[in-house]
Design a protein around this nucleic acid. Structure first.
Length: 437
RNA sequence: GUGGGUAUAGCGUAGUUGGUUAUCGCGCCAGUUUGUGGCACUGGAGACCGUGGGUUCGAAUCUCACUACCCACCCCA
């Protein structure tokens, strides 16, 4: 019979050492734990929003004309003929919930974080999947440059905490709608006059997203782009001042950055500060984190005008970098006590002891497939059991047993009838494993 | 949507002038060993050779198509 495979662009995340490195659930758990911890320490609280939303939410926020909305959304009619869409990113849902539940009545700023799958109908390649996962944060209610810089600093410390090296921070300002409109027009004029020198893709970019021409890899386009007008020269006084302050705060806390006028987030809602963290340890998709300010979005979705900003980290890409950089992860937990048995009465007793140990938070196992004693011991070795206890007729009769340390071979007598968990705790109480990050 | 590459057991692989039963390693199961794992030895299970057609007495091998995966463009996390 034909096997059904996982959908294109989706990946199974398997336990422990099975599967490719970046698809191992314990690595994901470790990363997620760090992210939650760092977010909470910085005052962000978790929000969980549905995986699917009214399609109009994304059309209004991400923008009708963007690639994401035009050709990458998983949109379908549900049984009630409503158009719903699997979330292509995390911000829209968070803003929707912020408005729907009146979170704007909370003390400002409102700081939220999430870990969520996202869906985009794209052709998969290295670092790009149809189902991928984002860690994101959103902050509502501050228009101050210190919020922009603070958010960037938060991302920065997050990567440091995860022992990720060699990330490059790129920042830019794309101004408010007023200055961006002026700039786009100037840019169009400039390229319009040099149309004959542009490659085909750039010609199509000309009316869709002229800023994209700036980082075309075609050498001839690159030549033309060198002389193009600069967004930073078109910023209004307010936007310029804001950007200057963001930079000087970053300078003052020692965060290195590069001003890159070509970074243009492809989602319509961004204003002013935009930034990304890129890595050379990824394939062509080098951005591991992207974000910025979106001062117009809350109003766009029907709320009171509210300054806001956020960023998202691509978890698959993050894990890919960590793999490339061989970041050490904490050792996985292994079985602490394996209770082997000889014969059926002992099997039952082993089962009882395992239940008892588990209720005291000891990771315990006994035979579940009917193996011989020899095979049980082999199995205990394979799963990395730290201690074993063998039960047979003698132990059941006497109520005494022997616990063996599988690493040292050392054996200790225990009383099976009386406070076994206490005796085991005393035997196994050596140094706890230290975290790798 | 457009290009390029790849396809043999769970994983990694051998197999080119087409020729019997498709190789090896790891892993898995069992035995040597119902009273103590790791080592070793022995045995076992597991492959529609990606799918479908064509050439041929005969195809994993030659050929065509399709599909899947990977990579890149585009776009983004």
């Amino acid at each position: 019979m034909e096997l059904i495979q996982a959908q294109r662009g989706t990946k199974d995340i398997l336990p422990a050492e099975k599967g490719e490195w970046s698809a191992q659930s314990r690595k994901w758990q470790a990363v997620e734990e760090v992210m939650r911890g760092e977010a909470e320490i910085s005052g962000f609280r978790e929000i969980r929003t549905p995986v699917f939303e009214d399609t109009r939410l994304f059309q209004r926020s991400v923008g009708e004309t963007t690639d994401v909305v035009q050709k990458e959304m998983y949109t379908f009619l549900d049984q009630g003929k409503r158009s719903v869409t699997l979330k292509p990113e995390g911000t829209a849902g968070a803003v929707r919930a912020y408005l729907e539940h009146g979170l704007f009545n909370e003390p400002m700023p409102v700081k939220l974080y999430y870990l969520t799958p996202c869906y985009r109908y794209e052709k998969a390649q290295a670092g790009r999947q149809r189902e991928f996962h984002q860690f994101g944060v959103e902050m509502f209610g501050s228009s101050l440059p210190v919020a922009d810089a603070g958010l960037i600093a938060f991302a920065h410390s997050l990567f440091e905490r995860l022992c990720i090296k060699n990330l490059k921070l790129k920042i830019n300002s794309i101004g408010c709608p007023a200055c961006r409109a002026k700039y786009t027009e100037a840019l169009k004029d400039y390229f319009e006059q040099r149309k004959d020198k542009l490659c085909d893709t750039c010609l199509s970019r000309l009316d869709r997203n002229p800023m994209r021409i700036l980082d075309c890899k075609d050498p001839q386009c690159g030549e033309v782009a060198k002389g193009a007008p600069h967004i930073l020269d078109y910023l209004c006084d307010d936007c310029r001042g804001h950007f200057e302050q963001v930079k000087s705060i970053l300078d003052s806390i020692g965060i290195q950055y590069e001003i890159d006028p070509t970074i243009v987030r492809g989602l319509d809602y961004y204003t002013r500060t935009v930034f990304e963290f890129v890595s050379e340890d990824l394939g062509a998709q080098s951005t591991v984190c992207g974000g910025g300010r979106y001062d117009g979005l809350v109003e766009e979705l029907g709320g009171r005008a509210t300054p806001a900003l956020g960023f998202a980290v691509g978890l698959e890409r993050l894990l890919m970098i960590m793999q490339a950089q061989k970041v050490e992860f904490p050792e996985p937990d292994t079985c602490e006590l394996y209770v082997a048995n000889i014969g059926e009465p002992a099997h039952l007793e082993a089962f009882r002891i395992v239940q008892q140990m588990r209720s005291c938070a000891v990771e315990a196992e006994c035979d579940e497939v009917g193996r011989s004693l020899n095979a049980q011991m082999k199995y205990a070795g394979k799963i990395g059991a730290q201690f074993t206890l063998v039960l047979g007729d003698d132990e059941i009769a006497s109520g005494k047993g022997v616990i063996k340390n599988m690493k040292t071979g050392e054996k200790k007598k225990v009383d099976l009838k009386n406070d076994l968990e206490g005796q085991f705790a005393a035997i196994s109480c050596e140094g706890e494993d230290d975290l790798a990050f």
